[in-house]
Amino acid sequence: MLKKVAAINDLSGVGRCSLTVAIPILSALKVQCCPFPTAILSSQTNYPEFTFLDFTNEMDKYKEVWNRLKINFDCIYSGFLGSMEQIDIVSKFIKENKTSLVVVDPVMGDNGELYPTFTKEMCNKIKELVKISTLTTPNLTEACILTDKEYHDNYSRDELIEIAKDLSGLGPENIIITGIIEDDNIINLAYNKAKNKSYFTAVKYNNRSYSGTGDIFTSIVCGLLTNNYDLEFAVKTSTNFIYKTINYTSQFNTDRNDGVMFEIFLGDLISI
């Protein structure tokens, strides 16, 4: 039997991000992806125009049907949440599925700034969600928000490990701090609390940025951990996959909002 992941995120018709990357990537990793939409958009929100259908009012009913059907999820994977109410619904869903691996991507900000839709109160709610997760995958900005540290972009590796340890003190067994720029490299730091062990994975940074790469990264990690691969392997696999897709996509004059051409490389994941 394939394992099941409940993937909680928005669905954009155009722009490779959120559920439109989670579904094919988890499927390639031989995991059944069960989408739990938070919103439906014609195109992701960085495009100059998009429609937006808020799914909040349906989310409680959606999960209650799953409960009545007695569907068990091996993993719950939460991405962008746009309101206090959505965070509360996801928190309740996690608590109702006590045996699930819980992956929380605490999407709140980047480059030292909160996203415009986020408030301090919402950040505190996200912190409560992180406390009941098994794995959390913040970028450096989000890691600083969660640990009440002042953001800057020149932390030493020892300081980064201390931030990861502080994050693990909130509750998660595993921490991954993503997208840290170090000289001409981009690094990801993984930390496992039980082993008190950290792993740095670095690749060359080509100064190209595309929408949705964080969603791809976390989806790969989620799928691999659900299938019992270890944290170090999951982070290395995800980092190398993103590096390869960015290098390939950067050969073409595409809109960064379109995301990376990850479809070309799904065979790499299927072969694992």
Rank of each mutant, 00 (worst) to 15 (best):
Cys75Tyr: 05
Val102Phe: 01
Thr119Ile: 10
Tyr151Arg: 03
Thr136Leu: 09
His152Thr: 12
Met84Ile: 08
Leu69Ile: 09
Asn124Tyr: 11
Tyr62Val: 08
Glu150Arg: 14
Val102Arg: 00
Thr137Cys: 14
Phe118Asp: 02
Gly169Val: 01
Thr137Leu: 12
Pro116Asp: 13
Leu129Met: 12
Asn111His: 13
Thr119Asp: 08
Glu162Ile: 07
Ser78Arg: 02
Leu146His: 15
Glu142Ser: 15
Gly79Gln: 03
His152Lys: 13
Thr117Ser: 06
Glu64His: 02
Pro172Ser: 02
Pro116Arg: 02
Lys92Arg: 08
Asn72Asp: 14
Lys131Asp: 09
Phe93Ala: 03
Leu135Gln: 10
Arg157Thr: 11
Lys92His: 10
Thr119Glu: 07
Ser100Gly: 10
Glu85Gly: 03
Asp88Trp: 00
Thr147Tyr: 15
Lys95Tyr: 01
Lys95His: 03
Thr134Lys: 10
Gly79Arg: 03
Glu159Arg: 02
Ile161Leu: 03
Ser83Ile: 06
Lys165Trp: 07
Lys165Glu: 12
Met122Trp: 00
Met122Ser: 00
Ile163Met: 06
Ala164Cys: 07
Tyr115Ser: 05
Thr99Trp: 01
Ile87Leu: 11
Thr136Ala: 09
Ser83Tyr: 07
Glu150Met: 13
Ile76Met: 04
Thr117Phe: 08
Leu69Cys: 12
Phe73Trp: 07
Lys70Met: 01
Phe73Glu: 03
Glu142His: 15
Ala143Trp: 15
Glu128Arg: 06
Asn139Met: 14
Pro106Cys: 00
Gly82Met: 07
Val130Arg: 00
Ser100Glu: 10
Leu129Ile: 09
Ser91Gln: 09
Leu129Val: 13
Arg68Ser: 11
Val65Tyr: 04
Glu96Gly: 06
Ile161Pro: 02
Pro106Glu: 03
Met108Cys: 10
Ser133His: 04
Asn72Cys: 07
Ala164Phe: 03
Ile71Met: 05
Cys75Pro: 06
Lys131Ile: 10
Phe93Glu: 05
His152Tyr: 15
Ala143Val: 15
Glu150Gln: 15
Asn67Gln: 10
Ile163His: 04
Phe93Tyr: 04
Asp105Glu: 14
Ala143Cys: 12
Pro172Met: 02
Tyr115Thr: 11
Lys165Asn: 03
Asn111Tyr: 07
